[in-house]
Write a protein that binds this DNA or RNA. Structure first.
Length: 385
RNA sequence: GUGGGUGUAGCUCAGUUGGUUAGAGCACCAGGUUGUGGCCCUGGGGGUCGCCGGUUCAAUUCCGGUCAUUCACC
């Protein structure tokens, strides 16, 4: 198996996932590089600095611009963005739901208007798979339909069933391409196709029975990993935790579990406590660009006037490039002055924080002290400093 | 010097045929942001309506004076 469980503490798991570009220590937070770049002015070198293990890129965005052929010719995403560690690509299902306009969903796939120039684009589950293969991802995600919340039971049911049918097509496509040798798609000087994986995505909205039924349907396909999608889209946090609670026993223990798009430090700790291994979220990067920064004492809005003459580091126990060099007053000034450096330092800090939070979580699980850590920090980290 | 324009929130400006508690955008202060459009959303503080006087039940509004500023002409 490509996933190995090393330790556990309650339902929390400490694992290791093998990819063609090295192993991933879990639980892990994947750093979001939607358009093959970390927003805020970070390079792949910076990703190393902040302790990133996996970069997450997006099929929808890269398909529209610059197009997968451009990336393929550059030796896939690994060559294109000069990142030698694992890459997961999201299928674009969520972006079609959240960004594209005039979308029309049929059994065959999704037709939508590009958010960049309005041109009409059609994407089938097979297309999304092919795009991701050409992008050279280590982990590709099956194309799903992310239903908005709230949505009527009947629609969510039909949508989840369609996502299952799409997943079966994606799996067939995956084997077909593997038979044609995936290496042909990417000139893989850096990449060995062996070990690349396609994961399935669970849907079902906020309906317990639909979630469980859909999870049963997709786990029958025996995929190398499973994601829970369609959460953190407006429902109460307790609803999200509840869905994770009821799904846990239906997710194979020996396969990695990925909660898509989540979340706050508290969300992540609580989800790890419910057996989740992989996370991704725009929040640390987006919030950083807006001056909202995470510390071990809670959230700080560096734009607040109280920091205008505060010469202390943002977080005294943080070892990031920002905290080891600059003061709160300086960072606030950079934000108020609209300097690019403000965002860059903020994003460096928040991603460093998230990646080190995950390292801390892994350590606590190994030591069997995760529950104590959870009780101590779960609420603090997402609260105000 | 003569004639005209303009003075309303920190900035740029609405408004008022005289009538509740004078508005907007930006800025400022503070929340929000969950498989990313460097956005966007929600609150809040802030004005002696240049100044003095007059008319009126009531003046930011009408009248007189004055100061500032700006344009044209001499």
């Amino acid at each position: 198996m490509s996933f190995t469980l090393l330790a556990s503490d309650g339902l929390a798991r400490r694992g290791c996932y093998q990819t063609p570009h090295g192993s991933i220590e879990t639980p892990v937070f994947m750093n979001v590089a939607t358009q093959a770049a970390i927003k805020g002015g970070l390079s792949s070198v910076d990703l190393q600095t902040v302790g990133c293990q996996v970069a997450l890129c997006n099929t929808y965005h890269l398909h529209l611009r610059p197009g997968e052929e451009i990336v393929r010719q550059a030796d896939g995403l690994h060559g294109f963005m000069a990142w030698d560690k694992p890459i997961l690509t999201d299928s674009g299902g969520f972006q079609v739901f959240s960004l594209a306009k005039l979308r029309k969903i049929t059994e065959e796939g999704v037709s939508f208007a590009s958010h960049i120039d309005g041109r009409r684009v059609f994407l089938s589950p097979e297309d999304a798979t092919d795009v991701q293969i050409k992008l050279g991802a280590d982990i590709i995600m099956a194309f799903d339909e992310c239903v908005e919340n709230p949505a009527p039971y009947d629609y969510v049911k039909q949508s989840a069933e369609r996502t299952t049918r799409w997943l079966k097509r994606v799996k067939a496509q995956w084997f077909k391409r593997a038979g044609e040798q995936i290496n042909d798609y990417v000139n893989l000087t850096r990449t060995n196709a062996a070990g690349r994986a396609c994961w399935g995505i669970n849907q079902g909205g906020i309906y317990d029975d639909l979630r469980i039924e859909h999870m049963k349907q997709i786990t029958e396909l025996d995929l190398p990993g499973y994601a829970v999608g369609g959460l953190a889209v407006g429902e109460e946090t307790d609803v999200m935790y509840h869905i994770l609670d009821i799904l846990e026993e239906h997710m194979p223990r020996e396969k990695p579990r990925y909660l898509m798009g989540v979340g706050t430090p508290e969300n992540i700790i609580e989800a790890v406590a419910r057996g989740v291994d992989f996370f991704d979220c725009v929040m640390p990067a987006r919030n950083a660009r807006h001056g909202h920064l995470y510390t071990w004492n809670g959230r700080v809005n560096i734009l607040n006037e109280r920091y205008k003459d505060d010469n202390a580091p943002l977080d005294e126990i943080c070892g990031c490039p920002l905290c080891t060099t600059h003061s709160r007053a300086y960072l606030r000034h950079l934000f108020k002055a609209g300097e690019i450096l403000a965002m860059r330092l903020g994003v460096l800090h928040n991603l460093w924080f998230y990646n080190h939070l995950m390292a801390r979580i892994r350590g606590e699980i190994e030591q069997g002290t995760f529950q104590t850590f959870r009780a101590r920090y779960s609420g603090v980290l997402s609260g105000r400093a």
